[in-house]
């Protein structure tokens, strides 16, 4: 009963055979299916989501079914089965960011853009999503636009960011670090020892 499916659009990798071969070559022969996640990334990077048609294509490439691809894809929170905006704005909402005002930040963005969590603007430029911890707790709150982190986004910076995005520009990244992440030499104690126990 299993028959090969006929495609209705040009396969994604039809003109990207080299890229496809490179991705497949990253994994040992016994692990062809491992290429599924990078292939999903590849499709999503270009099309901003992965359609069922693409799922079927990828299934054929890695030797499984579209169902399995959908099962895998839907498990992970950063693959999308609907197109996201040109600027996919993700606001971390987990504890350290919440303590730095991420809820208020999110509401601000929501007002500015006129969309709620999970929505995309009608013109397809912005989508807004609350996400869980993205590993920027020391530089909270953090806004991730597509693949770029904007850290320690206070009110001023947030306005600046949103203004730039509305102009269609991703502003230059400011690198925020703390602790030893300013270079160990600079990270000397701010205070004298408060508790140096006997060695």
């Amino acid at each position: 009963m299993n028959e090969t499916h006929t495609h209705t659009q040009t396969p994604f990798f039809a003109d990207k055979q080299e890229k496809l071969a490179e991705i497949l070559s990253r994994y040992p022969a016994e692990g062809r299916r491992s290429a599924l996640m990078p292939l999903l990334w590849e499709v999503q990077r270009e099309e901003r989501y992965v359609s069922e048609e693409r799922m079927r294509e990828l299934a054929e490439i890695v030797g499984t079914t579209a169902t399995e691809v959908k099962g895998v894809m839907s498990f992970y929170s950063t693959y999308h089965d609907q197109p996201v905006g040109t600027f996919h704005i993700q606001v971390c909402s987990t504890l350290s960011c919440a303590l730095a005002g991420s809820d208020e930040l999110f509401d601000f963005l929501s007002n500015e853009l006129g969309i709620v969590n999970g929505e995309t603007t009608a013109d397809g430029r912005f989508s807004l999503q609350k996400v869980e911890c993205v590993g920027s707790c020391g530089t909270a709150p953090v806004v991730q636009v597509n693949d770029t982190y904007f850290e320690r986004v206070g009110r001023g910076r947030c306005q600046h960011l949103v203004d730039a995005l509305k102009q269609g520009e991703l502003p230059p990244v400011w690198r925020e670090r703390g602790g030893d992440t300013v270079g160990a030499a600079k990270a000397e104690p701010l205070q004298k020892p408060t508790d140096v126990r006997e060695g």
Partner: peptide
């Protein structure tokens, strides 16, 4: 060996479904 049914989504939203 016909993998035509799988879990979709995760956590409390997990449901079974197919794309085949």
């Amino acid at each position: 060996g016909d993998e035509v049914l799988d879990f979709i989504e995760r956590t409390a939203h997990t449901y079974i479904g197919t794309a085949d």
